[in-house]
């Protein structure tokens, strides 16, 4: 166990040194999400101002609550998307030839992919901090049952996100084409996960697809705990589902890593793509 922890720490430190302080992080984690959040808010505003909207969705009646709803969505989405980005960076290991070196080392493969994702997340902790400060400044927007729910919200966001990152990283053992990650998991992810709309507005089949992604349930917990005064009892279903998904993603990542490694040992694929 201590060996695995050392690998996680080393890999996380490596990622930190690679990424931290780079302008890209500031843009992709703060500026772009903020601009997109504002554009989304204004785009749906005409609908929210319709006379029918407040009966169908009470949040629509109050622009501040609407903005908080969308901001929570943007925050969770940005967290999960940072994992997509970390997987993208992981694919550079293959391009620069260091992926093979990683697999020659005795390091636990699972620890490597967890460390990689965990680093991306800890670097975004400041983002969560900014959100918390901004939300606290607009104090009447937050509606929290008790302080413990902040911890629940943070855990429900962080742990599934690390599992998600490990899973995405393990996928890249099979392919060097990381562009599909960006294409498949950028826009479609926010659409099916209810980042910009309440889940009731989505058709059933999109809801079903959305449930397969941990972001959807993380977001239910985050919004419930921080904006709707939900306590642990109210959120037991999404939390249970999140726990299942997390275990499934870690299990899937571990299986993929083993399969992928066996395959590249046979094909030499780590070196020659």
């Amino acid at each position: 166990m201590s060996h695995a922890l050392r690998v996680v720490a080393a890999e996380a430190l490596k990622q930190h040194r690679r990424l931290f302080g780079q302008p890209l992080v500031l843009f992709s984690m703060l500026l772009w999400p903020l601009l997109t959040l504002a554009a989304t808010y204004y785009t749906v505003l005409p609908v929210m101002e319709s006379a029918a909207a407040p009966q169908r969705w009470p949040v629509a009646a109050d622009p501040r609550r609407l903005l908080a709803f969308l901001a929570a969505g943007a925050l969770a989405y940005t967290f999960f998307f940072s994992l997509v980005q970390s997987a993208w960076h992981f694919s550079f290991e293959r391009v620069s030839g260091t992926l093979e070196a990683l697999f020659l080392s005795p390091a636990s493969r699972m620890a490597l992919v967890i460390g990689n994702g965990a680093a991306a997340l800890t670097q975004n902790a400041w983002l969560f901090g900014c959100f918390a400060v901004a939300a606290a400044t607009a104090a009447d927007v937050l509606d929290v049952a008790h302080p413990g729910m902040y911890v629940v919200a943070a855990v429900a966001l962080l742990v599934p996100a690390v599992a998600w990152g490990a899973f995405l990283n393990s996928l890249l053992i099979f392919s060097r084409d990381s562009a599909f990650l960006y294409t498949l998991l950028d826009d479609p992810l926010w659409f099916v996960a209810g980042v910009r709309l309440p889940l009731f507005a989505l058709p059933v089949w999109i809801k079903v697809v959305g449930l397969a992604f941990p972001l959807t349930s993380s977001l239910v917990v985050l919004r419930g705990a921080l904006l709707d005064r939900a306590d642990l009892g109210d959120l037991v279903v999404p939390l249970g589902w999140l726990a299942l998904l997390t275990v499934g993603l870690f299990g899937g990542a571990s299986a993929l890593l083993r399969l992928g490694e066996a395959r590249v040992q046979r094909t030499g694929g780590l070196q020659v793509f």
Binding site: T43, V47, E49, A52, A53, A60, D186, D187, W190, R196
Partner: peptide, 29 residues
């Protein structure tokens, strides 16, 4: 990627317009 951005922007507006706005928009628009 760009097609998805366009289609999903239309999709979100359409779902919001039907499910939340009830097929109507505010006077400001």
């Amino acid at each position: 990627g760009t097609l998805a951005t366009g289609v999903l922007t239309i999709g979100v507006s359409m779902l919001a317009y039907r499910a939340i706005g009830g097929g109507r928009v505010g006077a400001s628009f």
